[in-house]
Amino acid sequence: MEYLTFRNIGLACGVGFLGYCVYFDHKRRSHPTYKERVKARRELERTQQETEDDIVLPPASDKRALEKFFVTEVEKGEELIQAGDYDRAVKHLSYAVVLCPQPQELLRYMKESLPPQAYVKLVKYLEIANEKVNEAFKKSSLAEEDVE
Rank of each mutant, 00 (worst) to 15 (best):
T33M: 08
E78V: 05
R41K: 14
Y3V: 14
G19F: 09
P116M: 04
S141H: 15
N130K: 10
N134L: 12
R42V: 13
S94H: 01
V123S: 05
A129V: 05
S141K: 15
H92Q: 08
C100A: 10
F17G: 12
F69D: 00
L142T: 07
F69W: 01
A96K: 00
V71W: 03
K121P: 05
Y34C: 11
Y34T: 05
L107A: 02
R28K: 13
K111Y: 09
V38F: 07
G77L: 02
E135C: 15
A40Y: 04
P59F: 00
G10Q: 09
R46W: 13
R42C: 11
V120S: 09
T51G: 10
A12D: 04
S30F: 03
S94M: 02
A40H: 08
P59L: 02
R64N: 15
E43Q: 14
V133N: 02
A65Y: 03
T5L: 11
F17S: 06
P32M: 05
E78Q: 05
V15L: 15
T5P: 04
V120W: 06
A83C: 07
P101H: 03
M110P: 02
A129M: 11
S140K: 07
S113G: 06
Y119T: 06
N130E: 13
D85G: 06
K132T: 10
H26D: 10
R42L: 15
E2T: 11
L57G: 02
K139I: 10
K132C: 07
G10T: 05
